[in-house]
Write a protein that binds this DNA or RNA. Structure first.
Lengths: 180, 180
DNA sequence: CATAACATGTAAGCAGTTACATGATTCT
DNA sequence: AGAATCATGTAACTGCTTACATGTTATG
């Protein structure tokens, strides 16, 4: 139940239209929460109906016309309440680890295929890591150390370290598979 | 679409009943895939209907009676096919990182609450890490280096390194929050 | 014989994915 | 005028979560 809170957070940082939100979910917000435009439009509708956000006054509110949203006090309260509540970490559910374990019972042909698959994932995670490091350099250079900036930097650090976990583990796994 | 494959993998490793599977999903299988007993029973029904598994012959197949399943050739084929297919990593969706970013816009009271929350998560991840390290010591001691064992060990290493990522990042984040 | 633990299921609701629909604006 | 892009949506489906239902076996 976190997508509405992700949207409220994004809109508090900067009022946006559905498509702008979609772009932000593909970029910066993407390193801790992903969402498609279909999810976002549906959720914007619900949040507006619930009185937590509102569309900014616009001359022509028609289909195909940009519609900007901002957070209302009720939305801010809801978000604060959610942050104050405590919530346990969700158990892991990772398809790649599962497929490697499946390969162990599916036989040698499957293990060979996994080797190529691990290499493919390694390349993707290396690219993602490079992108995050670039974002860190551009967004959190010297002088950017307000309270909010420090917290946002911490979150980005999380994304970076997570990608580093993947590149490290995949490298280790590939080395192990190749010395069979 | 991976739960059926997780179940096929588990049943190939060892034919089991629904409850036994549930226990295994809470323990060893849990470090790469989680599932509740409701999910498992529903999926066992579907897999049986699809002819991928079968219930072992039993004198009384009644409600409340244990029912053991084993994988049929069709199930093994399906699993192998799934391992051979390639699949991209799913984008991240982590509620704790999101809540930290939300705290940045929700104000100082929220940030204080997050400090306690991060400490709580750190304790949980430290406990999980200790458990995995214990499993590693017991299950992959010297002499356990068959092909299948090495792959299973790699998967457990993934679980271990992932917990280590969390304990490291949470420690870093707490230190940063406390020196405000 | 009551209770706890074992064992298997059903039902409703919510969240996420995939495919499709439709209008407006800009570019060639 | 046609195509690409911008922009907002709908609908159907799949998978997961939460709450509840029900029977069996072992134990004190």
């Amino acid at each position: 139940m976190s997508l509405p809170h992700a949207i409220l957070t994004a809109l508090l940082e900067k009022p946006s239209s559905g498509l702008e939100l979609t772009r932000r979910f593909d970029r910066s917000i993407g390193y801790f929460w992903s969402a498609t435009h279909q999810q976002i439009y549906r959720e914007l509708g619900k949040l507006e109906e619930a009185g937590q956000i509102r569309a900014l006054p616009s001359p022509v509110p028609l289909r195909g016309q940009k519609k900007e949203y901002e957070v209302l006090p009720a939305g801010r309260d809801e978000l604060t309440g959610w942050v104050l509540r405590s919530e346990d970490p969700k158990p892991i559910r990772d398809a790649l680890l599962l497929r490697l374990r499946a390969a162990a019972v599916a036989g040698p042909r499957a293990v060979d295929a996994m080797e190529a698959e691990l290499a493919r994932h390694l390349a993707m995670h290396e690219a993602q890591l490079a992108e995050y490091l670039d974002m860190e350099r551009r967004q959190f250079g010297p002088g950017r150390d307000s309270e909010a900036d420090r917290l946002r930097h911490l979150v980005l650090r999380g994304g970076i370290e997570l990608e580093r976990f993947w590149t490290d583990w995949l490298t280790e796994a590939l080395a192990s598979l190749r010395t069979r």
